[in-house]
Simulated assay, not measured.
Amino acid sequence: MSFTRACGLSELPAEGALAVEIDGTPVAVVRVDGEVYALRDVCSHAEVALSEGEVYNNTIECWLHGSCFDVRTGKPTNPPATQPVPTYPVKIEGDDVYVSLKES
């Protein structure tokens, strides 16, 4: 599996998301309760950046219509979104966060 450096761990908010682009793919790197996750940074309902929304209870909320997605699975936890967003494997090496665009 091929991993690409997405950002530094120190760049991530303690509870929040950072928008990055890997090989032309928008990715939201999210930290929740000390864990780091990565998912496609596009809401499956309205096609806006999820990284601009709130992060809480292992979810990221789309700021436009309020759909929340589980950061671990990409599955929507409430409407109006009904389709999941892709999630990606993450590994941490030192202060570097690496993401593989192979869906997990």
Rank of each mutant, 00 (worst) to 15 (best):
Y37Q: 04
S100N: 14
A49G: 05
V85L: 01
S51I: 11
P84K: 03
C68D: 11
F69D: 06
R40L: 15
E35I: 04
G24V: 10
L101Q: 14
A17F: 07
V27R: 06
R5I: 15
P80L: 06
D23C: 08
E47R: 00
I22V: 13
P89D: 15
C7V: 09
A28Q: 03
V99F: 07
V97D: 08
I60D: 04
G53E: 02
V99R: 04
G94Q: 05
E61H: 01
C43W: 07
C62Y: 04
I92E: 05
D23T: 12
S44N: 04
E47A: 09
R72P: 12
S51R: 01
V27C: 07
T59R: 05
V99G: 09
V30F: 05
S2I: 10
P13Q: 10
L50H: 05
A14P: 01
D23S: 09
V42P: 00
T73M: 03
R40T: 13
K102T: 15
S67N: 03
Q83V: 02
F69S: 02
Y88C: 03
D23P: 00
V85A: 05
I22K: 00
V32R: 06
N57M: 08
P89V: 08
E103C: 11
A81Y: 05
T59A: 12
V99T: 14
V32F: 09
P13V: 14
F3E: 12
R72N: 11
